[in-house]
Amino acid sequence: MSFLRVNNLSVRLKKGPPLLRRVSLQVAAGDVHGLVGESGAGKSMIGKAVLGILPPSVEVTGGEIWLDGVDLLSLPLAERRRRIGATAALIPQDPLTALNPSHRIGPQITDRLVDILGWSRADANRRALELLAEVQIPDPDRVMRSYPHELSGGMRQRILIASAFAAEPKLIVADEPTTALDVTVQKQILKLIAGMQARHGTALLFVTHDLGVVSKVCQRLSVLYAGMVVEDTSVADFFAAPRHAYSAALLAATPKYTDPAAGLQPVPDAVIAQVRAEVVAFDRGAAHG
């Protein structure tokens, strides 16, 4: 059964052009689904729509977002917020700005549990310590009392991961969680996220621009171009033989250090023209039907 089901979701800039064009995807409980595309393709927008944190300049024009059997978009705002808060969480991109510099780490993890989910302070603290240990932070007691600036980028990303898993959400949206990190740290963090996800059986929506990363953590992926899903397939099939010319071109553009002849091929103009034509045709179809 799919834990998250997005049906024909359309989002646009208010009084502007579309940003998502009837996007559909499904994430089963315990699965990792990659959202891939170049900047501006709308991959983060999907995650934001699911979590109900779209910027105010943007509006949903149609579609459904089924989370745990309920269509979020049919709910009143307060109820939608409550449901999302109880079942989903976010691992943000930039560990430097995602933690409030003027609060200690401990409360930043526990406050949500206490204030919104009604846990007791003691339970929340115990839970936070458990999770910090699980994300392999040495000396969790001390870290709970630290301020963000006292910790490295990798440490902060671990804390954000711990914080995302704190309330045992059934869905986590990870928005480019390792883009700001060194490759060596990225590897540790990716392994950590994958391990946590498997242990907790969480469904994970993983936004990234890096197909290398997708091949390491995801089971399925959607390739986006201009807010349109051009391919939705399993990771194994995709890397064996991408079906859409644009996905194939993206794969050929991804660097591959083991083979200097392969990778880093520019996306051919013909492929861009083709996928653009598809988008235009799609918009025309949408306008008439």
Binding site: R12, L13, G16, P17, P18, L19, G40, A41, A226, G227, R276, V279, V280
Partner: peptide, 12 residues
């Protein structure tokens, strides 16, 4: 012009 219509990044 077409590019702008498609991804709308420069709509500010």
């Amino acid at each position: 012009a077409e590019a702008k219509a498609i991804d709308g990044r420069s709509m500010v």
